[in-house]
Design a protein around this nucleic acid. Structure first.
Lengths: 210, 210
DNA sequence: GTCTATAGACCGATAGAC
DNA sequence: GTCTATCGGTCTATAGAC
């Protein structure tokens, strides 16, 4: 009864390794122990499987953002919501540091997150829609969130004055850069984790009032 | 006589748009006005065309680094060479800023650089070799260079004390992040260029002694 | 909802004429 | 070094039995 979900799961695994063009319907059906013809009882085409994976990942992504109280650009709300203010108005540098490391550890250990990230990475130039999804999800959403966060922290007098947007880029970009190395070369995981820790520490040394 | 080069040129264009698996020999031969059979008089296989593009890009990359006096990890030399010291010992924040913007403008306007970058981006998980090449070229080489640069600048008293490696990441990572947006969504070029300028400016505000 | 069989297109690569 | 023709294979997708 959950054959459809099993297909999506296997297809994501394949797409994330070999890309859309490099994956055949047999590649997906084989590991599931069914024939490729059976796939067409659940999906109309290979493209539809891919599209459904993208759709589903978008839903799951929004759910996660909702739980983390990260403002999502599409909902038209320009202000941090109540929970954000509560959580971050009294945050310490150390707390934010742990926050980031938790985000990184989840992103890198959760198999689903990794596969979606890999699939989007190798598919990012395939269509305008995918390009914008990649940027929106892995750059704009995080930058926008961090920017508002730093605005708050500056107002609250926790960190020195500065351009919140530039601060957000300086804080977040090294994190995704090291996550990129981590994705490509998992044997460098430890090194990347340490580099991220060092970076966050150095960042707060430079920006905190003390 | 330069048919071989024309093939490499067209193949790179195709591979950078649709990837290795998504590009057929006919896709390459068609725009050149020759039959796909003719391709096999110049290359043994599609894979060999791809490999040759990678090889050639590696040669051109090393040439560019040589000209820019950027130390390349493979040559076993751990120190900045003479020219680097001459160039950077007396560099100003403004000079370095212009240096970075020149690098960005070249990387983003040179069609060959763009195509190679796109091709490597969508092929980065295809083999361990390609993964390491991507990291080596777009992360480690630049970080290593910037790290040594900041070491010098700290010694010279131009910028405040700090961990040179973390500083390099904070300086360079936002640049590639915005270049990533720029590659995916060329209509945001202006915005990205400005963001990079703002970032570099903010960085020197934070690190310079004044 | 699974299978086998197959249509029909396209693939990478080769043969052989010129 | 180019062509046409083609081989042998794989691809997506469908037909039809069970």
């Amino acid at each position: 009864m959950n054959t459809k979900e099993l297909i999506l799961e296997e297809a994501l695994r394949q797409f994330s390794q070999k890309g859309f063009e490099g994956t055949s319907m047999s590649d997906i059906a084989g590991p599931l122990g069914i024939s490729k013809a059976a796939l067409y009882k659940h999906f109309e085409s290979k493209q539809q499987i891919f599209d459904r994976i993208i759709e589903e990942s978008e839903e799951k992504y929004k759910d996660v953002l909702e739980k983390l109280s990260v403002h999502y650009p599409d909902n038209g709300n320009d202000k941090l919501n109540k929970k954000d203010v509560d959580v971050y108005s009294g945050i310490s540098a150390k707390g934010l540091c742990e926050n980031v490391l938790a985000f990184v550890r989840f992103s890198m250990s959760d198999e689903y997150s990794r596969q979606v990230r890999r699939m989007l990475t190798i598919s990012q130039f395939q269509s305008r829609e995918l390009s914008e999804m990649y940027t929106g999800r892995y750059v704009d959403a995080m930058l926008g969130y961090d920017e508002k966060l730093f605005e708050q922290l500056i107002k609250a007098g926790v960190i020195k004055n500065g351009d919140p947007k530039a601060l957000a880029a300086m804080f977040y970009a090294p994190v995704i850069m090291y996550m990129g190395i981590w994705d490509r070369e998992p044997q460098r995981a430890k090194e990347c984790e340490k580099a991220i820790r060092d970076h966050v520490e150095q960042f707060f040394l430079m920006t905190s009032k003390h």
